[in-house]
Computed example of a mutant assay.
Amino acid sequence: MSQVLNLWKKTSALPLIGTRVFSVAFAQKAPYFATIRPRFTVIEPNRAELVIRKRRGVHNHIKTVHAIALCNGLEAAMGALAEATIPADKRWIPKGMDISYTAKADSDITCIAETDAVQWASDDPDLPVRVKGVREDGTVVIEGVIRLWVTPKPPRI
């Protein structure tokens, strides 16, 4: 089991503070993610979800959640999914993002990343991760694909 998935299982089981502990630890590993204060709610192979609270620190000029904050949330969700899913003999790096903004992000936003198990078994190094951000009323405000480059880990010397 991956370190991320193992940490999620241990911390999310703690009453009241578990998901918060994990979210802070995750954001410390990649400090830029701390700017959105992600609150992870689901981490499992092939799926990760987190919430970005609508607060002043992520607002744009019209007081909705800024587009780049949304992308940051999608990338954090994708990273957690990738770490929880990737086979032990492979490594990944993001290589691109294609995103459409489809509605105003005027509430808290749930960022979701999804893959299918068969994608990780493929020899094709190009792996698309489906991502979307959803308002509290269920409206999709951002959606697209983050493309990963997945390759075998080099042998240890």
Rank of each mutant, 00 (worst) to 15 (best):
S2I: 08
V4W: 00
V4E: 05
L5V: 14
L5E: 07
N6F: 13
L7I: 14
L7D: 12
K9P: 00
K10E: 11
K10Q: 15
L14G: 01
L14M: 14
L14A: 06
L16R: 10
L16S: 10
L16N: 11
G18K: 01
G18P: 12
T19E: 07
R20K: 07
R20S: 12
F22N: 01
V24L: 01
A25F: 06
A25I: 12
A27M: 04
Q28D: 05
K29Y: 08
A30T: 15
P31W: 06
A34E: 13
P38Y: 03
R39T: 13
V42Y: 04
I43E: 05
I43N: 01
I43K: 00
R47C: 11
A48H: 06
E49C: 13
E49N: 06
L50E: 11
V51I: 15
V51M: 00
R53A: 14
R53N: 08
R55Y: 01
R56K: 10
V58A: 05
H59Y: 13
H59C: 10
N60R: 03
N60G: 05
K63E: 15
K63M: 15
T64L: 07
H66L: 00
I68D: 11
A69T: 05
L70P: 12
L70I: 04
N72W: 03
G73R: 01
L74V: 04
M78C: 14
L81T: 02
T85S: 15
I86C: 08
I86A: 12
I86W: 09
D89M: 02
D89T: 09
R91V: 11
W92S: 08
W92V: 05
I93A: 14
P94S: 02
K95Y: 01
K95F: 09
K95Q: 11
G96H: 06
G96I: 13
M97F: 14
D98S: 11
S100V: 11
Y101H: 15
A103W: 02
K104T: 11
A105M: 02
D106Q: 05
D106W: 03
S107P: 12
D108I: 01
I109D: 11
I109T: 05
I112Q: 10
T115C: 14
A117F: 02
V118Q: 14
V118N: 14
Q119S: 15
W120C: 03
A121R: 15
A121I: 03
S122K: 08
P125T: 14
P125A: 10
D126F: 09
P128M: 04
R130M: 13
V131M: 01
K132C: 13
K132S: 14
G133S: 01
G133E: 02
V134L: 02
R135N: 15
E136V: 11
D137H: 06
T139R: 10
V140C: 08
I142M: 13
I142E: 13
V145L: 12
I146M: 08
R147F: 04
R147E: 11
L148Q: 07
W149L: 15
W149D: 10
T151W: 00
P152Q: 03
P154A: 13
R156G: 06
R156T: 15
I157N: 15
